[in-house]
């Protein structure tokens, strides 16, 4: 019987010992953990410093996605009001977040570092259709996404924010040429040689 009592007390003392120690439990939602730098959460589409979207509608993210969660519809840039840096931009861009497995292949596939998985993880909702995130929600979550999906104070760790497009301004606009009203094309790079 003494042994039983001893065992019981040992358990109580273990508990007591831990009562004084610092808790590692976070009192969510009042306290929230800062996600690690490599955390793969909600996607975001990024822009350059000059406001042009990085996404060029190339479909590579859709192709890489193992769950076919991404839909991309590309369109020609209007040279007077280009949306992306280049000939094409994504007119439609949707991710079905229920399908998404947050593997990050889309981020790896993207040649222009447009789509990146960020630190946001509070993505619950009540209706299935709410999980199809449209381009607005992905591009500008502050304005278009539910409030809990955007925290201004949480850092985006991976990849540059903004930045300059590489190389010269590429052609934008519908094909120019003999049979169209010329719509501004790029001046060929001066040959320095």
């Amino acid at each position: 019987m003494i042994e039983d009592l001893k065992a019981l007390l040992a358990g109580f003392f273990t508990t007591l010992r831990h009562m004084g120690r610092k808790k590692i439990t976070l009192m969510y939602p009042e306290q929230k953990r800062q996600p690690a730098a490599k955390f793969k959460g909600r996607h975001q589409l990024h822009k350059y410093d000059n406001g042009l979207e990085r996404c060029i509608g190339c479909h590579l993210c859709a192709a890489a996605c193992p769950s076919q969660a991404i839909y991309v519809g590309a369109e020609e840039n209007d040279p007077k009001a280009p949306i992306s840096f280049g000939e094409r931009y994504a007119k439609h861009f949707e991710i079905n977040m229920i399908r998404c497995i947050f593997c990050g292949f889309c981020e790896e596939a993207c040649p222009v570092e447009a789509i990146r998985l960020g630190p946001e993880y509070e993505l619950s909702d009540y209706q299935r259709h709410a999980f199809v995130y449209t381009k607005d929600m992905l591009l500008d979550p502050e304005k278009h996404a539910p409030r809990r999906q955007f925290h201004a104070d949480v850092e985006q760790h991976r990849g540059p924010i903004g930045g300059k497009p590489e190389g010269e301004a590429a052609v934008s606009g519908a094909p120019k040429g003999h049979c169209d009203t010329p719509t501004g094309a790029r001046t060929p790079r001066k040959q320095d040689l």
């Binding site: 094909p175 120019k176 040429g177 003999h178 049979c179 169209d180 094309a185 790029r186 060929p188 040959q191």
Partner: peptide, 19 residues
């Protein structure tokens, strides 16, 4: 590593073909 040749891109050869 040299600069690549620059030529016309998205050149409308006709109403149906782009070069």
């Amino acid at each position: 590593q040299e600069d690549k040749r620059a030529k016309d891109k998205a050149f409308a050869l006709s109403d149906r073909i782009v070069l």
